[in-house]
Design a protein around this nucleic acid. Sequence first.
RNA 1: GUGGGUGUAGCUCAAUAGGUUAGAGCACUGGGUUGUGGCCCCAGAGGCUGUCGGUUCAAGUCCGAUCACUCACC
Length: 367
Amino acid sequence: MKFEIISKDSTGAARRGRLTTRHGAIETPVFMPVGTQGTVKSLTPDELEDLGAQIILGNTYHLYLRPGAERIARFGGLHSFMHWNGSILTDSGGFQVFSLAKIRKIQEEGVIFQSHIDGSRHMISPEVSMQIQMQLGSDIAMCFDECTSYPVTREYAKQSMDMTVRWARRCKQAHALPGQALFGIVQGSIYPDIRRACLEQLRDIDFDGYALGSLAVGEPKEEMLAVLEAITGELTESAPRYLMGVGTPEDLVEGVRHGVDMFDCVLPTRNARNGMLFTSQGSIQIKNSRFADDDQPIEIDCTCYTCRRFSRAYLRHLFMSRELLVYRLNTLHNLHYYLRLMENIREALQEDCFDQWRRDFYNGLQK
RNA sequence: GUGGGUGUAGCUCAAUAGGUUAGAGCACUGGGUUGUGGCCCCAGAGGCUGUCGGUUCAAGUCCGAUCACUCACC
């Protein structure tokens, strides 16, 4: 994996870069649509490609439980199994073990948990997570970490971060797939000094990229920004920076402003299925009755497949009727919005007018 | 025609022995959703308790009539 910085914003920390994996170049800052179970829900790989998706995220936890990593390996890995030729980043399973699994026991060795599907017992350790991610054959693997919830005490955050670092060391040790990058994950909740200490140790281990975990887990927005403020300056300049699980369009803009290169979030896809659609003027709920007779597209000037064809009234009808098509049409629009947003950001960075672009972005939202 | 049963929110049903402001689920309206269970969570609106009369301090509840639906039997 190679990462190069193409240009830097003269007014702040934002940067325009290019990440090259075995599956091609990724222009950054980039948003990675979430494709948990070997599919970005409701879309075909061709549609994803047409939307301009460069890299998607897959999940170790889900794919390990079903259909199983060995099976996917037999099919030549996740790319081949799901027929996606772009890049793939796999989450380590750390987050899901904490957010989805029913009973769990965290110990030095790893995490024992019960499957959310059938209740069966499993253990994921740093070594197991690496093994699965290597079998999936993703382009970027993530270290197995503990994602702390919010709030946690300083003591817990410190102790958890220490373990995450020990796990990171074991991940690095167990990782043995040529061409697959491995990212470390900075933990430490909202405590800047713990975050910094974590980053320092991760840097000693030496990873291909560094991620910020356990943000947007319920903390006030100012807390998240404070952590970004405190930590992004310390991140290795020459390595990609990944803000995990974030976020809203505003979060992406602020992340970029603080020098983040990569994002992933379920919002555009999950909210699409729940009827929330993003526009440059803010989000709308397509189920609102005021759209029942609205012949306009979701967003007037939007060039997505959905907006070029369908009215809000039709989309509302499909949504209220729970018709399958609406999941796809809404997802197409939301991802189009997110991916265009990042494209616009990259363009602004390239022309070194990000600061102005950002002001225009916020002005648009207030309309 | 005779006998029985049931009528409560848009729908399906609750409401101790007659006793505060008649409740719930679904549907509807609005809000939420941040390393994904097509979920889920929060809030709101919505009632001449079929109709008329009676008993009672007090009736969705008891009595009578009437209408509607429904079951059984001629």
